[in-house]
Amino acid sequence: MKTKIHFIVNPISGKGKNELCPTLLATYFPEADYDLVIKKTEFANHATQLTNSSMEEEAEIIVACGGDGTINEVASCVVNTSIVLGILPMGSGNGLASNLKIPKNRGKGLSIIRNRNITSIDTATINGSPFFSNTGVGFDAHVISDYEEKARRRLFSYVQSTFRTLKKFNTGPVEVSCDGFRETFSPFLLFVSNSNEMGYKMSLTPKASLQDGLLDLIIVPKLSRLKLIYFTILFLFKKHHWMKEVKFKQVNKLKIKSLDDTVLKIQKDGGLFVPDSPDIEIVLYPENLKVCVP
């Protein structure tokens, strides 16, 4: 019986103009052994619809071809099922793919899917909405909000959004509680990570693991301008843990409450997520997503 593999392609991820050539696919997946389907997204959240239809068509492997946002949409559908997630990184950051050591080289990526070396990874939800790499409340969420307003999405655009956000960023007080820990503060950064990379080879949580049953939490309160510069320099050299203001914890669930009842901006796997409540709950679920890896 042929193996059914469906490819969900986001044509505008990363540098855009992404294509998946049927002739190339045939080189790795002979027609005698595989039943292949290519679907292209045309609008926001279309990958979710396409993945759901592929599940109804009994696809055994569904491959997310795009960036972390596309992966999030596809993986959100297949989590807690027997369907295997494949990844062809075509985005700009590609944080989750990099953590899983899945290369951007198209041929190598297809070989990984063909070889079907499958592992199970942890996933998490924020107010019930799945994420797989990281989520954050504070500066990173506001940077993503600015970034998503721009037509061109490149590393330079991300840098521009970072500097624009620095000039206007402000978040009110929040209460964070987890595993007996409770603290009230106004965050510069409140970052929760399942993986050890954010994208672009940058990391706030280099020790995070997709298979340890824990989320890595980093708390950075509001900083003076001088300390902010110092934090940025340390971050670039992966030494931000040197700052006494920076706190790290490992948790399997946590709650965040906006104390001024503001609905907080949140980034989730590199995309903007606005909850419908000032109260936020983040929960980890161990090894409930099957993924093709090298």
Rank of each mutant, 00 (worst) to 15 (best):
E287G: 03
I219T: 12
T27L: 09
D35I: 05
K244W: 00
L289D: 05
P173W: 10
C21S: 15
N10F: 08
Q49S: 13
Q211C: 08
E56Q: 14
L226M: 11
N94C: 12
A59N: 03
H46V: 02
V220P: 02
R164I: 01
E19T: 14
H142T: 07
M202A: 13
L110S: 04
A208Q: 03
V74W: 08
A151I: 11
A26R: 12
Y285D: 07
E148L: 01
I112V: 11
G128V: 08
P173C: 10
A64C: 05
M55E: 04
D269A: 05
S54L: 10
S258R: 05
G86H: 02
F181I: 13
E56C: 03
I121E: 06
K244G: 00
N194E: 02
K222L: 13
G109Y: 03
Y147N: 00
Q250V: 04
E19L: 10
P286V: 06
M90I: 03
F231E: 02
V274G: 01
N194A: 05
D33I: 00
I8P: 02
L189K: 02
C77M: 05
G180R: 04
L24K: 14
E58H: 15
P294R: 13
L189C: 07
K253M: 05
D146N: 14
L100D: 11
G270Y: 12
D179P: 00
F7Y: 15
C178A: 15
E148I: 00
L96Q: 06
S277K: 10
N252S: 15
S277C: 06
T171N: 11
K257W: 01
V283S: 06
I233C: 08
I144P: 07
W242A: 10
C21F: 10
S195V: 05
K40C: 13
I12T: 14
N52R: 14
D261K: 12
P294T: 13
F169W: 04
